[in-house]
Design a protein around this nucleic acid. Sequence first.
DNA 1: TAATATTGTCTCAATCTGAGACAATATTAA
DNA 2: TTAATATTGTCTCAGATTGAGACAATATTA
Lengths: 233, 233
Amino acid sequence: MDSKGYLKHIAYDSVIFGFSGEKLKILIMKYHNTGLFALPGGFVKHDEDLNDAVRRGLKERTGLDDIYLEQFYAFGSMARYKPEVMEAIMKANNQTLEGYSWLLDRFISVAYYALINYEDVVPTPDALSDSCDWYALDELPNLMLDHSIIVAKALQTLRENLERKLVGMNLLPSLFTMKELQQVYEAILGEKLHRGTFQRKILNLGILRRHEKQFSGAANKAPFLYSFEGNLI
Amino acid sequence: MDSKGYLKHIAYDSVIFGFSGEKLKILIMKYHNTGLFALPGGFVKHDEDLNDAVRRGLKERTGLDDIYLEQFYAFGSMARYKPEVMEAIMKANNQTLEGYSWLLDRFISVAYYALINYEDVVPTPDALSDSCDWYALDELPNLMLDHSIIVAKALQTLRENLERKLVGMNLLPSLFTMKELQQVYEAILGEKLHRGTFQRKILNLGILRRHEKQFSGAANKAPFLYSFEGNLI
DNA sequence: TAATATTGTCTCAATCTGAGACAATATTAA
DNA sequence: TTAATATTGTCTCAGATTGAGACAATATTA
Protein backbone atom coordinates (compact mmCIF):
# COMPACT_ATOMS: atom_id res chain seq x y z
CA MET A 1 0.00 0.00 0.00
CA ASP A 2 2.24 2.72 -1.31
CA SER A 3 -0.65 4.77 -2.61
CA LYS A 4 -1.75 6.54 0.57
CA GLY A 5 -4.56 4.07 1.10
CA TYR A 6 -6.14 4.62 -2.31
CA LEU A 7 -6.83 2.00 -4.95
CA LYS A 8 -4.38 2.18 -7.84
CA HIS A 9 -5.60 2.66 -11.40
CA ILE A 10 -9.08 3.77 -10.34
CA ALA A 11 -10.39 7.33 -10.27
CA TYR A 12 -13.74 8.98 -10.55
CA ASP A 13 -14.88 12.19 -12.21
CA SER A 14 -18.11 14.03 -11.51
CA VAL A 15 -20.20 16.28 -13.73
CA ILE A 16 -22.12 18.41 -11.25
CA PHE A 17 -25.09 20.11 -12.88
CA GLY A 18 -26.76 23.25 -11.57
CA PHE A 19 -29.39 25.54 -13.09
CA SER A 20 -29.16 29.33 -12.92
CA GLY A 21 -29.98 32.25 -15.16
CA GLU A 22 -31.99 29.94 -17.42
CA LYS A 23 -28.81 28.03 -18.18
CA LEU A 24 -27.43 24.62 -17.34
CA LYS A 25 -24.04 24.91 -15.63
CA ILE A 26 -21.40 22.56 -14.26
CA LEU A 27 -18.67 22.87 -11.66
CA ILE A 28 -15.12 23.16 -13.05
CA MET A 29 -11.86 23.22 -11.09
CA LYS A 30 -8.78 25.16 -12.11
CA TYR A 31 -5.39 23.84 -11.03
CA HIS A 32 -2.73 26.14 -9.58
CA ASN A 33 -0.38 27.76 -12.08
CA THR A 34 -1.03 25.30 -14.87
CA GLY A 35 -4.04 26.87 -16.55
CA LEU A 36 -5.61 23.41 -16.58
CA PHE A 37 -9.36 23.09 -16.14
CA ALA A 38 -10.83 19.80 -14.99
CA LEU A 39 -13.89 18.07 -13.64
CA PRO A 40 -13.99 17.51 -9.89
CA GLY A 41 -12.66 14.03 -9.28
CA GLY A 42 -10.81 11.86 -6.86
CA PHE A 43 -9.77 8.43 -5.79
CA VAL A 44 -11.26 5.50 -3.94
CA LYS A 45 -9.94 4.38 -0.55
CA HIS A 46 -8.96 0.79 -0.21
CA ASP A 47 -11.85 0.00 2.13
CA GLU A 48 -14.46 2.33 0.68
CA ASP A 49 -17.42 1.77 -1.65
CA LEU A 50 -16.97 3.40 -5.04
CA ASN A 51 -20.26 5.26 -4.61
CA ASP A 52 -19.24 6.44 -1.15
CA ALA A 53 -15.99 7.82 -2.50
CA VAL A 54 -17.90 9.93 -5.00
CA ARG A 55 -20.31 11.20 -2.33
CA ARG A 56 -17.35 12.07 -0.13
CA GLY A 57 -15.89 14.14 -2.95
CA LEU A 58 -19.22 15.84 -3.66
CA LYS A 59 -19.56 16.76 -0.03
CA GLU A 60 -16.13 18.40 -0.10
CA ARG A 61 -16.79 20.32 -3.32
CA THR A 62 -20.37 21.42 -2.63
CA GLY A 63 -21.01 21.01 1.10
CA LEU A 64 -24.10 18.94 0.26
CA ASP A 65 -24.97 15.54 1.65
CA ASP A 66 -28.03 14.12 -0.06
CA ILE A 67 -27.43 14.59 -3.74
CA TYR A 68 -29.05 13.04 -6.78
CA LEU A 69 -26.18 11.03 -8.20
CA GLU A 70 -25.94 8.66 -11.13
CA GLN A 71 -23.05 6.69 -12.55
CA PHE A 72 -23.03 6.77 -16.34
CA TYR A 73 -19.79 5.40 -17.79
CA ALA A 74 -16.32 4.06 -17.04
CA PHE A 75 -13.72 5.66 -19.30
CA GLY A 76 -10.86 3.26 -19.90
CA SER A 77 -9.13 4.00 -23.18
CA MET A 78 -5.35 4.27 -23.45
CA ALA A 79 -5.79 7.63 -25.16
CA ARG A 80 -6.58 9.20 -21.80
CA TYR A 81 -3.27 8.10 -20.26
CA LYS A 82 -1.06 11.19 -20.19
CA PRO A 83 1.25 11.05 -17.17
CA GLU A 84 2.86 14.37 -18.11
CA VAL A 85 -0.39 16.16 -17.26
CA MET A 86 -0.50 14.90 -13.70
CA GLU A 87 3.23 15.54 -13.41
CA ALA A 88 2.72 19.17 -14.39
CA ILE A 89 0.01 19.56 -11.78
CA MET A 90 2.19 18.08 -9.04
CA LYS A 91 5.18 20.24 -9.98
CA ALA A 92 3.06 23.39 -10.01
CA ASN A 93 2.21 22.59 -6.40
CA ASN A 94 5.85 22.07 -5.41
CA GLN A 95 4.95 18.50 -4.64
CA THR A 96 7.80 16.03 -4.89
CA LEU A 97 6.84 12.90 -6.74
CA GLU A 98 8.18 10.86 -3.87
CA GLY A 99 5.39 8.60 -2.69
CA TYR A 100 3.09 9.94 -5.38
CA SER A 101 4.37 8.01 -8.37
CA TRP A 102 1.15 5.98 -8.36
CA LEU A 103 -0.56 9.16 -9.58
CA LEU A 104 1.47 8.98 -12.78
CA ASP A 105 0.24 5.50 -13.53
CA ARG A 106 -2.69 4.67 -15.75
CA PHE A 107 -6.24 5.29 -14.48
CA ILE A 108 -9.65 4.09 -15.45
CA SER A 109 -12.16 6.72 -14.44
CA VAL A 110 -15.74 6.01 -13.46
CA ALA A 111 -17.88 9.04 -14.31
CA TYR A 112 -20.95 10.23 -12.42
CA TYR A 113 -23.32 13.10 -12.88
CA ALA A 114 -25.01 14.93 -10.02
CA LEU A 115 -28.03 17.24 -10.00
CA ILE A 116 -28.16 19.88 -7.32
CA ASN A 117 -29.99 23.02 -6.34
CA TYR A 118 -27.65 25.79 -7.45
CA GLU A 119 -28.61 28.05 -4.55
CA ASP A 120 -27.57 25.49 -1.93
CA VAL A 121 -23.96 25.24 -3.08
CA VAL A 122 -20.78 26.97 -2.01
CA PRO A 123 -18.20 25.73 -4.54
CA THR A 124 -14.96 24.85 -2.73
CA PRO A 125 -11.60 24.14 -4.42
CA ASP A 126 -9.27 21.43 -3.13
CA ALA A 127 -5.60 21.72 -2.21
CA LEU A 128 -4.37 21.44 -5.80
CA SER A 129 -6.83 23.97 -7.25
CA ASP A 130 -7.26 27.68 -6.93
CA SER A 131 -10.88 27.74 -7.98
CA CYS A 132 -14.04 25.71 -8.29
CA ASP A 133 -16.67 27.61 -10.23
CA TRP A 134 -19.83 27.33 -12.26
CA TYR A 135 -19.55 27.43 -16.05
CA ALA A 136 -22.46 27.41 -18.47
CA LEU A 137 -22.33 24.40 -20.79
CA ASP A 138 -22.00 26.66 -23.82
CA GLU A 139 -19.14 28.64 -22.25
CA LEU A 140 -16.86 25.90 -20.99
CA PRO A 141 -13.10 26.42 -21.04
CA ASN A 142 -10.90 23.80 -22.66
CA LEU A 143 -10.84 20.84 -20.31
CA MET A 144 -7.86 18.60 -19.76
CA LEU A 145 -7.57 14.98 -20.89
CA ASP A 146 -10.89 13.54 -22.08
CA HIS A 147 -13.02 15.63 -19.74
CA SER A 148 -14.88 17.31 -22.60
CA ILE A 149 -15.96 13.90 -23.81
CA ILE A 150 -17.08 13.00 -20.31
CA VAL A 151 -19.21 16.15 -20.14
CA ALA A 152 -20.77 15.40 -23.52
CA LYS A 153 -21.67 11.88 -22.47
CA ALA A 154 -23.07 13.14 -19.16
CA LEU A 155 -25.38 15.54 -20.98
CA GLN A 156 -26.45 12.85 -23.40
CA THR A 157 -27.30 10.50 -20.54
CA LEU A 158 -29.10 13.23 -18.64
CA ARG A 159 -31.26 13.90 -21.71
CA GLU A 160 -32.12 10.25 -22.09
CA ASN A 161 -33.03 9.99 -18.40
CA LEU A 162 -34.97 13.24 -18.19
CA GLU A 163 -38.40 11.80 -18.97
CA ARG A 164 -37.70 8.25 -17.99
CA LYS A 165 -36.56 9.03 -14.46
CA LEU A 166 -38.28 12.41 -13.97
CA VAL A 167 -35.08 13.87 -12.79
CA GLY A 168 -35.55 17.55 -13.58
CA MET A 169 -36.83 18.73 -10.21
CA ASN A 170 -33.52 17.91 -8.58
CA LEU A 171 -32.11 21.05 -10.19
CA LEU A 172 -34.66 23.31 -8.47
CA PRO A 173 -35.41 24.43 -4.92
CA SER A 174 -38.14 22.49 -3.17
CA LEU A 175 -40.74 25.07 -4.25
CA PHE A 176 -40.78 26.13 -7.89
CA THR A 177 -43.09 27.42 -10.60
CA MET A 178 -44.17 25.55 -13.71
CA LYS A 179 -42.24 28.03 -15.80
CA GLU A 180 -39.02 27.33 -13.93
CA LEU A 181 -39.48 23.61 -14.41
CA GLN A 182 -40.09 24.13 -18.11
CA GLN A 183 -36.91 26.19 -18.35
CA VAL A 184 -34.97 23.35 -16.76
CA TYR A 185 -36.36 20.93 -19.33
CA GLU A 186 -35.56 23.32 -22.16
CA ALA A 187 -32.02 23.88 -20.92
CA ILE A 188 -31.37 20.14 -20.71
CA LEU A 189 -32.97 19.27 -24.02
CA GLY A 190 -31.63 22.33 -25.81
CA GLU A 191 -34.97 23.16 -27.41
CA LYS A 192 -38.09 25.19 -26.73
CA LEU A 193 -41.20 23.37 -25.55
CA HIS A 194 -44.84 24.33 -26.03
CA ARG A 195 -46.17 25.77 -22.78
CA GLY A 196 -49.65 24.25 -22.77
CA THR A 197 -48.47 20.81 -23.78
CA PHE A 198 -45.65 20.80 -21.24
CA GLN A 199 -47.93 21.83 -18.39
CA ARG A 200 -50.54 19.23 -19.30
CA LYS A 201 -48.03 16.41 -19.50
CA ILE A 202 -46.27 17.21 -16.22
CA LEU A 203 -49.51 17.65 -14.31
CA ASN A 204 -50.93 14.41 -15.69
CA LEU A 205 -47.94 12.56 -14.25
CA GLY A 206 -49.42 13.26 -10.83
CA ILE A 207 -46.06 13.75 -9.17
CA LEU A 208 -46.36 17.44 -8.30
CA ARG A 209 -48.15 18.96 -5.33
CA ARG A 210 -49.64 22.39 -5.93
CA HIS A 211 -49.14 25.05 -3.27
CA GLU A 212 -50.36 28.62 -2.79
CA LYS A 213 -49.61 31.18 -5.47
CA GLN A 214 -46.40 33.11 -5.60
CA PHE A 215 -46.82 36.90 -5.75
CA SER A 216 -43.65 37.80 -7.53
CA GLY A 217 -44.39 41.52 -7.91
CA ALA A 218 -44.49 41.21 -11.69
CA ALA A 219 -47.29 42.85 -13.62
CA ASN A 220 -49.18 39.69 -14.42
CA LYS A 221 -51.14 36.78 -13.07
CA ALA A 222 -49.21 35.06 -10.30
CA PRO A 223 -48.15 31.45 -10.93
CA PHE A 224 -48.76 28.53 -8.59
CA LEU A 225 -45.86 27.04 -6.69
CA TYR A 226 -45.26 23.32 -6.88
CA SER A 227 -43.21 20.82 -4.98
CA PHE A 228 -42.07 17.39 -6.02
CA GLU A 229 -44.15 14.74 -4.24
CA GLY A 230 -42.05 13.63 -1.29
CA ASN A 231 -40.52 16.95 -0.40
CA LEU A 232 -42.28 19.09 2.18
CA ILE A 233 -45.66 18.14 3.58
CA MET B 1 4.21 -4.78 -12.16
CA ASP B 2 3.84 -7.95 -10.16
CA SER B 3 0.41 -8.68 -11.62
CA LYS B 4 1.41 -10.40 -14.86
CA GLY B 5 0.91 -7.20 -16.82
CA TYR B 6 -2.68 -6.67 -15.71
CA LEU B 7 -4.06 -3.60 -13.96
CA LYS B 8 -4.68 -4.18 -10.28
CA HIS B 9 -8.11 -3.65 -8.77
CA ILE B 10 -9.88 -3.64 -12.14
CA ALA B 11 -11.86 -6.47 -13.66
CA TYR B 12 -14.70 -6.81 -16.10
CA ASP B 13 -17.69 -9.11 -16.25
CA SER B 14 -19.80 -9.81 -19.30
CA VAL B 15 -23.42 -10.84 -19.61
CA ILE B 16 -23.60 -12.52 -23.00
CA PHE B 17 -27.16 -12.82 -24.24
CA GLY B 18 -28.36 -15.30 -26.82
CA PHE B 19 -31.83 -16.30 -27.98
CA SER B 20 -32.89 -19.89 -28.51
CA GLY B 21 -36.00 -21.96 -28.00
CA GLU B 22 -38.04 -18.80 -27.53
CA LYS B 23 -35.97 -18.00 -24.45
CA LEU B 24 -33.32 -15.49 -23.53
CA LYS B 25 -30.15 -17.19 -22.34
CA ILE B 26 -26.73 -16.15 -21.06
CA LEU B 27 -23.32 -17.78 -20.95
CA ILE B 28 -22.23 -19.05 -17.52
CA MET B 29 -18.87 -20.55 -16.57
CA LYS B 30 -18.37 -23.27 -13.98
CA TYR B 31 -15.08 -23.39 -12.10
CA HIS B 32 -13.23 -26.65 -11.56
CA ASN B 33 -14.12 -28.57 -8.43
CA THR B 34 -15.66 -25.68 -6.59
CA GLY B 35 -19.24 -25.82 -7.81
CA LEU B 36 -19.01 -22.06 -8.38
CA PHE B 37 -20.88 -20.53 -11.28
CA ALA B 38 -19.82 -17.15 -12.63
CA LEU B 39 -20.13 -14.69 -15.47
CA PRO B 40 -17.33 -14.71 -18.03
CA GLY B 41 -14.89 -12.05 -16.97
CA GLY B 42 -11.28 -11.05 -16.99
CA PHE B 43 -8.68 -8.41 -16.47
CA VAL B 44 -7.26 -5.46 -18.36
CA LYS B 45 -3.67 -5.40 -19.57
CA HIS B 46 -1.57 -2.46 -18.57
CA ASP B 47 -1.42 -1.09 -22.11
CA GLU B 48 -4.85 -2.12 -23.33
CA ASP B 49 -8.12 -0.21 -23.73
CA LEU B 50 -10.81 -1.36 -21.33
CA ASN B 51 -13.17 -2.02 -24.23
CA ASP B 52 -10.50 -3.98 -26.09
CA ALA B 53 -9.94 -6.18 -23.04
CA VAL B 54 -13.62 -7.09 -23.02
CA ARG B 55 -13.63 -7.83 -26.74
CA ARG B 56 -10.56 -10.00 -26.30
CA GLY B 57 -12.41 -11.99 -23.62
CA LEU B 58 -15.53 -12.31 -25.75
CA LYS B 59 -13.48 -13.60 -28.65
CA GLU B 60 -11.99 -16.30 -26.42
CA ARG B 61 -15.35 -17.36 -24.97
CA THR B 62 -17.44 -17.24 -28.15
CA GLY B 63 -15.06 -17.19 -31.09
CA LEU B 64 -16.83 -14.09 -32.40
CA ASP B 65 -15.18 -10.86 -33.45
CA ASP B 66 -17.78 -8.21 -34.22
CA ILE B 67 -20.18 -8.29 -31.34
CA TYR B 68 -22.79 -5.83 -30.18
CA LEU B 69 -21.36 -4.74 -26.84
CA GLU B 70 -22.47 -2.18 -24.31
CA GLN B 71 -21.01 -1.14 -20.98
CA PHE B 72 -23.72 -0.64 -18.37
CA TYR B 73 -22.31 -0.28 -14.86
CA ALA B 74 -19.17 -0.36 -12.72
CA PHE B 75 -19.72 -2.40 -9.57
CA GLY B 76 -17.58 -1.09 -6.75
CA SER B 77 -19.11 -1.87 -3.39
CA MET B 78 -17.07 -3.38 -0.55
CA ALA B 79 -19.73 -6.07 -0.21
CA ARG B 80 -18.37 -7.76 -3.32
CA TYR B 81 -14.87 -8.13 -1.85
CA LYS B 82 -14.54 -11.77 -0.82
CA PRO B 83 -10.94 -12.91 -1.24
CA GLU B 84 -11.75 -16.41 0.05
CA VAL B 85 -13.76 -17.07 -3.09
CA MET B 86 -10.87 -16.40 -5.43
CA GLU B 87 -8.59 -18.34 -3.09
CA ALA B 88 -10.86 -21.37 -3.32
CA ILE B 89 -10.82 -21.19 -7.12
CA MET B 90 -7.02 -20.99 -7.21
CA LYS B 91 -6.61 -23.88 -4.79
CA ALA B 92 -9.03 -26.06 -6.75
CA ASN B 93 -6.70 -25.58 -9.71
CA ASN B 94 -3.58 -26.52 -7.71
CA GLN B 95 -2.36 -23.02 -8.35
CA THR B 96 0.08 -21.66 -5.78
CA LEU B 97 -0.74 -18.15 -4.72
CA GLU B 98 2.83 -17.19 -5.43
CA GLY B 99 2.76 -14.29 -7.88
CA TYR B 100 -1.03 -14.33 -7.85
CA SER B 101 -1.69 -12.53 -4.59
CA TRP B 102 -2.97 -9.53 -6.57
CA LEU B 103 -5.99 -11.70 -7.43
CA LEU B 104 -6.95 -11.75 -3.76
CA ASP B 105 -7.06 -7.98 -3.59
CA ARG B 106 -10.13 -5.87 -4.01
CA PHE B 107 -11.61 -5.41 -7.50
CA ILE B 108 -13.96 -2.95 -9.08
CA SER B 109 -15.70 -4.67 -11.96
CA VAL B 110 -16.95 -2.92 -15.06
CA ALA B 111 -19.90 -4.83 -16.46
CA TYR B 112 -20.87 -5.19 -20.13
CA TYR B 113 -23.64 -6.94 -21.93
CA ALA B 114 -23.29 -8.47 -25.36
CA LEU B 115 -25.92 -9.58 -27.87
CA ILE B 116 -25.01 -12.39 -30.21
CA ASN B 117 -26.52 -14.79 -32.66
CA TYR B 118 -26.86 -18.00 -30.68
CA GLU B 119 -26.16 -20.20 -33.68
CA ASP B 120 -22.78 -18.60 -34.35
CA VAL B 121 -21.29 -19.45 -30.97
CA VAL B 122 -19.18 -22.31 -29.70
CA PRO B 123 -18.97 -21.68 -25.94
CA THR B 124 -15.40 -22.27 -24.75
CA PRO B 125 -14.28 -22.51 -21.12
CA ASP B 126 -10.99 -21.02 -19.92
CA ALA B 127 -8.19 -22.72 -17.98
CA LEU B 128 -9.90 -22.33 -14.60
CA SER B 129 -13.33 -23.58 -15.75
CA ASP B 130 -14.65 -26.92 -16.83
CA SER B 131 -17.63 -25.55 -18.69
CA CYS B 132 -19.07 -22.53 -20.41
CA ASP B 133 -22.74 -23.08 -21.23
CA TRP B 134 -26.02 -21.40 -22.03
CA TYR B 135 -28.56 -21.00 -19.25
CA ALA B 136 -32.05 -19.60 -19.67
CA LEU B 137 -32.58 -16.53 -17.51
CA ASP B 138 -35.31 -18.27 -15.53
CA GLU B 139 -33.14 -21.33 -14.88
CA LEU B 140 -29.89 -19.78 -13.71
CA PRO B 141 -27.81 -21.58 -11.09
CA ASN B 142 -26.70 -19.65 -8.02
CA LEU B 143 -23.97 -17.29 -9.14
CA MET B 144 -20.97 -16.33 -7.05
CA LEU B 145 -20.34 -12.91 -5.52
CA ASP B 146 -22.72 -10.25 -6.85
CA HIS B 147 -23.09 -11.80 -10.28
CA SER B 148 -26.85 -12.27 -9.89
CA ILE B 149 -27.17 -8.54 -9.30
CA ILE B 150 -25.06 -7.87 -12.38
CA VAL B 151 -27.33 -10.07 -14.48
CA ALA B 152 -30.44 -8.32 -13.15
CA LYS B 153 -29.02 -4.91 -13.98
CA ALA B 154 -27.96 -6.10 -17.43
CA LEU B 155 -31.49 -7.24 -18.18
CA GLN B 156 -32.95 -4.00 -16.87
CA THR B 157 -30.61 -1.96 -19.08
CA LEU B 158 -31.31 -4.16 -22.08
CA ARG B 159 -35.04 -3.57 -21.62
CA GLU B 160 -34.57 0.18 -21.41
CA ASN B 161 -32.42 0.18 -24.54
CA LEU B 162 -34.58 -2.20 -26.57
CA GLU B 163 -36.75 0.44 -28.24
CA ARG B 164 -34.39 3.35 -27.89
CA LYS B 165 -31.44 1.67 -29.61
CA LEU B 166 -33.32 -0.92 -31.69
CA VAL B 167 -31.03 -3.58 -30.45
CA GLY B 168 -33.18 -6.68 -30.81
CA MET B 169 -31.99 -7.86 -34.20
CA ASN B 170 -28.49 -8.51 -32.85
CA LEU B 171 -29.88 -11.65 -31.23
CA LEU B 172 -31.01 -13.12 -34.56
CA PRO B 173 -29.34 -14.43 -37.68
CA SER B 174 -29.09 -11.96 -40.54
CA LEU B 175 -32.34 -13.27 -42.05
CA PHE B 176 -35.32 -13.67 -39.74
CA THR B 177 -39.11 -13.63 -39.74
CA MET B 178 -41.33 -11.05 -38.07
CA LYS B 179 -42.50 -13.70 -35.65
CA GLU B 180 -38.96 -14.46 -34.53
CA LEU B 181 -38.28 -10.79 -33.96
CA GLN B 182 -41.46 -10.49 -31.93
CA GLN B 183 -40.41 -13.47 -29.83
CA VAL B 184 -37.10 -11.77 -29.10
CA TYR B 185 -38.93 -8.65 -27.94
CA GLU B 186 -41.29 -10.71 -25.82
CA ALA B 187 -38.43 -12.64 -24.24
CA ILE B 188 -36.58 -9.45 -23.34
CA LEU B 189 -39.61 -7.58 -22.05
CA GLY B 190 -41.12 -10.61 -20.35
CA GLU B 191 -44.59 -9.97 -21.76
CA LYS B 192 -46.73 -10.86 -24.75
CA LEU B 193 -47.17 -8.25 -27.48
CA HIS B 194 -50.05 -7.78 -29.90
CA ARG B 195 -49.06 -9.15 -33.28
CA GLY B 196 -50.64 -6.53 -35.52
CA THR B 197 -49.43 -3.61 -33.46
CA PHE B 198 -45.92 -4.97 -33.20
CA GLN B 199 -45.65 -5.56 -36.93
CA ARG B 200 -46.99 -2.10 -37.76
CA LYS B 201 -44.59 -0.36 -35.40
CA ILE B 202 -41.47 -2.22 -36.53
CA LEU B 203 -42.24 -1.78 -40.23
CA ASN B 204 -42.95 1.93 -39.78
CA LEU B 205 -39.46 2.37 -38.36
CA GLY B 206 -38.20 1.70 -41.86
CA ILE B 207 -35.12 -0.20 -40.70
CA LEU B 208 -35.97 -3.61 -42.10
CA ARG B 209 -35.50 -4.86 -45.61
CA ARG B 210 -38.01 -7.40 -46.82
CA HIS B 211 -36.75 -10.46 -48.69
CA GLU B 212 -38.41 -13.40 -50.43
CA LYS B 213 -40.75 -15.63 -48.46
CA GLN B 214 -39.58 -18.52 -46.38
CA PHE B 215 -41.28 -21.83 -47.16
CA SER B 216 -40.95 -23.53 -43.81
CA GLY B 217 -42.98 -26.62 -44.66
CA ALA B 218 -45.59 -25.72 -42.06
CA ALA B 219 -49.25 -25.92 -42.98
CA ASN B 220 -49.86 -22.23 -43.30
CA LYS B 221 -49.07 -19.06 -45.17
CA ALA B 222 -45.31 -18.59 -45.44
CA PRO B 223 -43.84 -15.52 -43.72
CA PHE B 224 -41.51 -12.99 -45.31
CA LEU B 225 -37.89 -12.93 -44.33
CA TYR B 226 -36.35 -9.67 -43.17
CA SER B 227 -32.86 -8.35 -42.63
CA PHE B 228 -31.73 -5.42 -40.57
CA GLU B 229 -30.81 -2.53 -42.87
CA GLY B 230 -27.03 -2.71 -43.17
CA ASN B 231 -26.61 -6.45 -43.20
CA LEU B 232 -26.57 -8.19 -46.55
CA ILE B 233 -27.24 -6.33 -49.76
C1' DT C 1 -59.83 52.58 -14.84
C1' DA C 2 -57.26 51.04 -18.92
C1' DA C 3 -53.19 48.72 -20.62
C1' DT C 4 -49.90 44.89 -20.42
C1' DA C 5 -47.70 40.60 -19.56
C1' DT C 6 -48.23 36.12 -18.02
C1' DT C 7 -50.82 32.15 -16.36
C1' DG C 8 -54.26 28.24 -16.30
C1' DT C 9 -57.05 25.84 -19.14
C1' DC C 10 -59.65 24.54 -23.16
C1' DT C 11 -60.43 23.02 -27.91
C1' DC C 12 -59.43 20.90 -32.24
C1' DA C 13 -56.98 18.45 -35.49
C1' DA C 14 -53.39 15.18 -36.29
C1' DT C 15 -51.10 11.24 -34.82
C1' DC C 16 -50.34 7.08 -32.31
C1' DT C 17 -51.89 2.76 -29.91
C1' DG C 18 -54.49 -1.46 -28.63
C1' DA C 19 -57.55 -4.76 -30.10
C1' DG C 20 -60.08 -7.34 -33.08
C1' DA C 21 -61.39 -8.86 -37.93
C1' DC C 22 -60.68 -10.80 -42.40
C1' DA C 23 -58.82 -12.27 -46.64
C1' DA C 24 -54.66 -14.70 -48.40
C1' DT C 25 -51.89 -18.52 -48.33
C1' DA C 26 -49.21 -23.38 -47.53
C1' DT C 27 -49.90 -27.52 -46.09
C1' DT C 28 -52.54 -31.90 -44.52
C1' DA C 29 -56.67 -34.69 -44.47
C1' DA C 30 -60.56 -36.52 -46.87
C1' DT D 1 -59.59 -32.43 -56.21
C1' DT D 2 -61.53 -30.29 -52.37
C1' DA D 3 -62.14 -29.13 -47.54
C1' DA D 4 -59.99 -28.13 -43.18
C1' DT D 5 -56.45 -25.80 -40.44
C1' DA D 6 -52.94 -22.78 -38.87
C1' DT D 7 -50.55 -18.72 -39.63
C1' DT D 8 -49.58 -14.41 -42.02
C1' DG D 9 -50.25 -9.59 -43.86
C1' DT D 10 -53.11 -5.93 -43.52
C1' DC D 11 -57.11 -3.20 -42.40
C1' DT D 12 -60.43 -0.83 -39.46
C1' DC D 13 -62.10 1.48 -35.52
C1' DA D 14 -62.27 3.32 -31.05
C1' DG D 15 -59.62 5.40 -27.54
C1' DA D 16 -55.58 7.84 -25.98
C1' DT D 17 -51.85 11.06 -26.75
C1' DT D 18 -49.66 15.10 -28.83
C1' DG D 19 -48.91 19.72 -31.04
C1' DA D 20 -50.65 24.13 -31.71
C1' DG D 21 -53.38 27.90 -31.06
C1' DA D 22 -57.08 30.53 -28.44
C1' DC D 23 -59.10 32.83 -24.54
C1' DA D 24 -60.49 34.22 -20.10
C1' DA D 25 -58.37 35.25 -15.55
C1' DT D 26 -55.32 37.85 -13.01
C1' DA D 27 -51.38 41.12 -10.80
C1' DT D 28 -49.28 45.01 -11.58
C1' DT D 29 -48.19 49.74 -13.84
C1' DA D 30 -49.67 53.85 -16.30
